[in-house]
């Protein structure tokens, strides 16, 4: 349980954050990360938690991932919360109660949850993405399109997503327009 964290936190988390930032700034791009070995979670999801979660962040963990609970507590100190209070949430797509996560307030749209979606695989195929961060268009193997269409329609409110599979991650901010390929 004490294993599987960053060995050199300042440098490893810096490198991991740049991958996360680049992913969020360029929706659909896929990045490889390293440094976490969490139980029940992908390497990429573990890296994101080590990089973004701490004692000040409320975290919602899908019940099916409860084997990761102690690892998360030990390495981040994050407190587990209900979906309504989560700043970060993590789970497989069908396990995420999307409607319950905070999407921000009209005066503070940043106070919204960031979801880490565990995926079986991540490829640059599937739904067509366009919007800020994307020159013309991109494709990403998203689990569906409708939920992201609804999310984008709430802009400037909305959820922001990371998708993780193995040691790979991609992101989808609320600004991205998602259409069936």
């Amino acid at each position: 349980m004490l294993e599987g964290g960053f060995q050199d936190q300042p440098r490893q988390s810096a490198t991991a954050f740049r991958a996360a930032l680049d992913a969020m700034a360029r929706p659909g791009t896929i990045h490889t990360v390293a440094g976490a070995q969490p139980p029940a979670l992908s390497i990429a999801a573990g890296v994101l938690l080590l990089t973004l979660a701490d004692r000040t962040t409320g975290l919602w963990l899908a019940p099916s991932l409860s084997a990761a609970r102690d690892w998360i507590t030990f390495h981040t100190g994050a407190t587990f919360t209900a979906p309504e209070d989560a700043q970060i949430a993590i789970g497989a797509w069908p396990d995420l109660p999307l409607a319950r996560f905070p999407i921000g307030r009209p005066d503070y749209p940043d106070r919204s949850a960031t979801l880490i979606v565990e995926m079986p695989a991540l490829t640059a195929t599937g739904p067509r993405l366009s919007g800020p961060g994307i020159k013309t268009h991109a494709n990403l193997s998203l689990p569906e399109t409708e939920a992201f269409r609804i999310n984008a329609a709430a802009f400037p409110l909305g959820l922001d997503f990371f998708f993780t599979a193995g040691d790979r991650l991609a992101a989808l901010p609320r600004t991205t327009k998602v259409e069936a390929a």
Binding site: F17, P109, D110, D160
Partner: peptide
């Protein structure tokens, strides 16, 4: 590394991701 402590960097990093997700909006 890079002067700031890790708690502070995480706080700024979370703000940066929200800033990127809401272009032009000022994140406190």
């Amino acid at each position: 590394f890079a002067y700031l402590d890790e708690d502070t960097k995480r706080m700024i990093r979370r703000a940066l991701l929200k800033a990127v997700a809401i272009p032009g909006y000022q994140v406190p």
